[in-house]
Amino acid sequence: MLDGTIIAQTLLSGVLIGFIYALVAVGLTLIYGVMDIVNFAHGEFLMLSMYVVFWLYALAGLDPMVSLPISVAVMFVVGVVTHKLVVRPVLRAPMSAQIFVTFGLMVFMRNGAQFLWSPNYRLIQTPLVAGRLELFGLFVGKPQLVAALGALITTGLVFWFLKRTETGRTLQAVAEDQDAAALMGINPDRTFMLAWGIGAACVGVAGALLANYYYIFPTVGNTFVLMAFVAVALGGFGSVPGALLAGVIIGVVEVLTGLFISPAFKNITAYVLYMVVVLVRPRGLLGEW
């Protein structure tokens, strides 16, 4: 029956999936924070990185953990190129153009993936990280554990980079006041490029970690990015620790709702929670403005 082990197990799983939501959200919130542009194609970046890892596995026999750095590098480049080719041309355009340009990119990438790689589900059958651990009577899938730890470490690195490095501070400066930052000799365009690169590289990490256990198909991004959007808003637009906190909260709320109310309601409670936060504290949990 519904004993302590089951509740603890469920909580643990909620936290693990929450870290993944958080990592996807971090990339999103970073781009938004620096540029004020919402990247609707973020889920498709995730999808692309999962396919990169999958094809490296299928064609070159590389394990996801080995191809993780490749995925990160590829996604960094994809982010930078997206900025140069897609986003920069509309920087001075009206807001609606800025929204629809990434939206269009999303539709393009999703359908491109279906065209090139078919809508079939792919799964990496025998990754190095497989199986499960038993800790104090709780089962933890090793791939899930590795994914959660990887997500936590990456989020920590991004936070450290933003707060403790010179380049990171320039990102914050541009986020706060683009014109003033430019007057201080910071090149905003370079900073934007960096934000896109790092934002996309975050899902490069997430994609490689997820590919260890999650199935891959052209609209896989949707499954994760919707919750990541909620995490961004819940945690506070532009806040990295906020995204982390919110991701975990959403993961836990989802599984607890599933266990105690009904799995059919698990997304609803995440959205209700978000709406309550928006009404009571519009800037989000850890939003700075």
Partner: peptide
Amino acid sequence: PYPSGTADMTAEVQSLKA
């Protein structure tokens, strides 16, 4: 019941286990 296309199915399986 569960919503199709869910990212995680732990809660569902836990309820089954219970």
